[in-house]
Computed example of a mutant assay.
Amino acid sequence: MPKGWALPENTKFSKKGSRKKIKTKVIDYLKQFFLNSNLNPKDKLIAKELYEELLELAHSGEIDEDHVPKVTTIQNWIE
């Protein structure tokens, strides 16, 4: 083993838990959209439509555009 392998600057940490998390305010909006679609099945939104709704909220200033998750993230959240 090379010398200095245990020094902090040489230590490699896993990236577990370093994923970007969905902000609480965004989750609240997603829950609201999801519950509204459960009340009226004809108003059911798919992940792409939920993404577009969140983008509209971001453009209006309700949430930060950086906090809008990807469509695949929303799809995983729905399932």
Rank of each mutant, 00 (worst) to 15 (best):
W5S: 07
V71A: 05
Y51M: 02
L39E: 11
T73L: 05
K44W: 09
E52K: 03
I27H: 01
I22M: 08
E9K: 10
L30G: 01
E62M: 02
L54I: 01
A6K: 09
S37F: 12
L50N: 11
P8E: 06
D66M: 10
D43F: 10
S18C: 13
L54G: 01
P8I: 11
Y51K: 11
K15Q: 05
F13G: 03
E62W: 00
S60E: 15
A58T: 02
E65K: 08
I27Y: 00
K16N: 10
K15S: 11
E9Y: 08
K31L: 11
G4Y: 05
G61E: 00
T11I: 13
E62S: 04
I63H: 00
L7R: 12
L39D: 08
L50C: 14
A47E: 05
R19E: 09
L57S: 00
E65P: 03
T11G: 07
T24D: 15
S18F: 07
L54H: 01
P41A: 06
E53K: 11
G17Q: 04
K44E: 13
L7H: 12
H67Q: 10
K42T: 15
D66F: 09
E62H: 01
W5I: 08
E49Y: 02
K70N: 13
V68R: 01
S60N: 15
L39G: 02
A6V: 05
T72F: 15
L55M: 12
E56D: 12
A6S: 09
L55W: 15
L30C: 04
T72E: 14
I22Q: 01
T72S: 15
K42N: 14
V71F: 08
V68N: 02
T24I: 07
L45N: 08
Q32W: 07
I63G: 00
K20L: 14
F33E: 02
V71K: 14
D43T: 08
L39R: 08
K25A: 15
Y51G: 01
P8H: 09
S18P: 03
F34S: 03
K20Q: 13
F34W: 12
A58P: 02
S37V: 06
G17D: 02
H67E: 14
K44Y: 08
K15A: 14
I74A: 04
K31P: 03
R19S: 04
G61M: 00
L57F: 01
K21I: 10
K31Q: 12
V71C: 07
V71H: 06
G17I: 03
T72C: 12
S60V: 10
N10G: 05
G4C: 09
G61C: 01
Q32P: 07
P41R: 06
D43Q: 13
Y51A: 03
D66W: 06
E49H: 03
S60W: 04
E53L: 07
T11A: 12
K25I: 12
D28P: 02
T72V: 14
E65L: 09
K23M: 06
D43R: 09
I22N: 00
L45I: 03
W5E: 10
A47V: 02
K12P: 04
K15Y: 06
W5T: 05
T11N: 13
S37E: 13
K25Q: 14
K70W: 15
D64W: 03
D28V: 01
L50Q: 14
S14Y: 11
G17L: 04
K42M: 06
I22H: 00
